[in-house]
Amino acid sequence: MQKLTNKAVGTLKVQDVSLSLLKANDYIAEQIRNDMQERNILVLNLVSSPGSGKTSLLEETIKRLKDKINIAVLEGDLETERDAERIRQQGVQALQIVTQGICHLEAQMIQQALPSMNFDNIDILFIENVGNLVCPASYDLGEDIRVTLVSCTEGDDKPKKYPSMFLTTDIMIVTKKDLLPYVPFSVDAVIKDAKEVNNKIDIFLLSSYKGDGMDEWCNWLLNRVSEKKNQLANAEV
């Protein structure tokens, strides 16, 4: 005898979509950008390999600029408070984001950290990303300017090895200039490669340790801060 039963028969349903996997990050980054714009704060995202001198550059920059402008720093690292402690010794506000193994900062981490900081009269917020030339490239943190450091001890081939980072970078800083006589690093070669990947990239060459090139960098920063203030003043008129 035949038995009537209910049996699931699958029908395939194909949905063509276009859903960005960075949409959530980009949405939060835009919120941060608007928030910082309203507070008139210039935000820089510093990226590089570990050991290129991001924290040293920040220490020296703060030493030279702290009497002229107000600076705050967000430090990203897998572990330890060490970088934030180094920055605090310069007398400015610093907050450490410990990612506990995550290899990059995401916009949400920044958004969560911001309420713990005091932004009264702050002119510049530096975000020091986790040392890594790969993953941070994909994550907009709401910054105005992305700065990538390449130290001359790590080699002049970085722009072609990590093109995504250099493509999304506004400024490349070649650090540890004082060591140039001792290492096979060609400034011309690194500039040529960086320009081939990203023709719009601006370049600085400096030594945080010896101070060479620091004035040019600091003056450039001061000009960006005034530009930002003028933009806001014009927008309010």
Binding site: Q2, L4, K7, V9, T11, Q15, S18
Partner: peptide, 19 residues
């Protein structure tokens, strides 16, 4: 690009089947 371009689902539709 870093996106989802297509999602394919299998929708169970219950049909009466003679066995």
């Amino acid at each position: 690009e870093l996106l989802i371009s297509k999602i394919i689902s299998e929708e169970p539709s219950y049909a009466e089947v003679n066995e």
